[in-house]
Amino acid sequence: MTEVDKRLRDVVRQAAGLPFFSDRYAHLDLAGEFSITDVPEMTREDITASMTLASGQPGRGGAYLFTSGGSTAAPKVAWIPIAMHLDAILGHWRPLGPGDVLANLAMPGRLWSAHYFYNGMAERCGADAIGLGHVEAGEWPQWLDFLDTHGTTALCGTPSTLEQVLALALRLRHPILRRLRAALFFGEPCPESLVRLCREEVPGVRLWGNYGSTETWVIGHNGPDCDATTFHVFPHQHVEVVDGSVLVTTLHEDAVSPVVRYRIGDRARWTQCACGGDRALRLLGREGALIKFAGTLVAPDELLGLARADASVAAAQAAWREADPERLEIRVVPGAGATPDVDALRARLLDSQIDLRFALRGDDDAFEIVVVDRLQVNDRTAKTPSLVPLDPPR
């Protein structure tokens, strides 16, 4: 029995002592060497129920309560130890060092975790932190001056925010680019356009990313020599890929509430990262993200992947209206100096979706490629969703 197998069974046995898990684990021989694959998976609803019951349990240290969601549905909660597993994380992923000044662009407040995590990371690394948070687009020229004046060497934020800030600094030929050396991303997939921007236009800025969720906390990390969609799993996180779906069990001894075979909702496969490191997980998108449009099931992420693969497209987002008259827009941001051929792009997307192409006969206006200057961003989290609601017609 390996040390990981032993720790997995210990986590399950500890969980079995809580009311939420006792019935779920009744079929397991907890005294024996049961297989982790015999343990039921956890859903988001399970995570919320178990963590609510586990809060206030004696014999543990203090914790933060963070949430995910809450914009359109009930928030999903997670109790995270005050130390936020930072020692375990920084032992393998350390993008900052003494002398760095981090501009923290993550949104603070409303139980949103990233802002506090990156402030804590800066402290542990011996760096300074400027807790700036969200900035409106028109305010950025003045804030770039401010950040440059105060010696900023690193930025952290969603890929959407980082790309916006770096592209503006490049257009302005802002002196802050002489000092910036790192951009830390989280919260959403890193687009190829941001990778190209850092690699070709601002090569002094190197990309560092982490992957996880509020419920599991940080699962994996990557660095400047890694593929942007590939993350190396931390030793305190046990990841299974079952039929393409990611299941996570948290092994950290300071975990407040059990996270056992949690189905995080992502698709992935094990791969070999360009950096040569091990335990590399390549993310392939969300699972089960289907909408009913034109009488057929459509996977917006598949359409967006095809749109982003077009050389003239820098970024893409789907906007959907379910109510009559239903409509689906694929909104695309042009690449630098490019003009997307919307008719050719629309035809290419429909050719990949035979059912959708057939369903739209005689109703072509319901599906359209729309060129936009920027994509819609969530005001609370600064994330750029793949799918947004389309306003009803006036």
Rank of each mutant, 00 (worst) to 15 (best):
V248C: 10
W208I: 06
G277F: 12
F231S: 04
H238Y: 02
Y211M: 03
L284S: 08
Y262A: 04
E200C: 04
R282T: 15
A274E: 11
T214C: 04
L284Y: 09
P235D: 11
Q272M: 12
I264W: 01
C226M: 13
R286E: 00
R279G: 09
S245R: 09
W217H: 10
S213G: 11
L247H: 03
V239A: 06
V256G: 11
E240K: 00
V202T: 11
L290D: 03
D301K: 00
L207M: 10
A268C: 06
V205K: 02
D225P: 12
E253F: 14
V218T: 15
V241K: 03
L207Q: 08
V205Y: 05
G288M: 04
A307K: 08
R279Y: 14
H232E: 02
L197M: 08
L297Q: 09
N222L: 15
D254Y: 08
A268L: 07
D278A: 12
T229L: 15
T216S: 03
V239D: 08
E201P: 10
D254S: 10
P300F: 03
H252N: 12
G288D: 07
R199Y: 04
G244I: 07
E200P: 07
R286P: 01
G204W: 10
D254I: 09
V242H: 04
W270D: 11
R308F: 10
V260N: 08
L207G: 10
C226L: 12
T230Y: 05
D254R: 09
A274F: 09
E287C: 13
C273I: 07
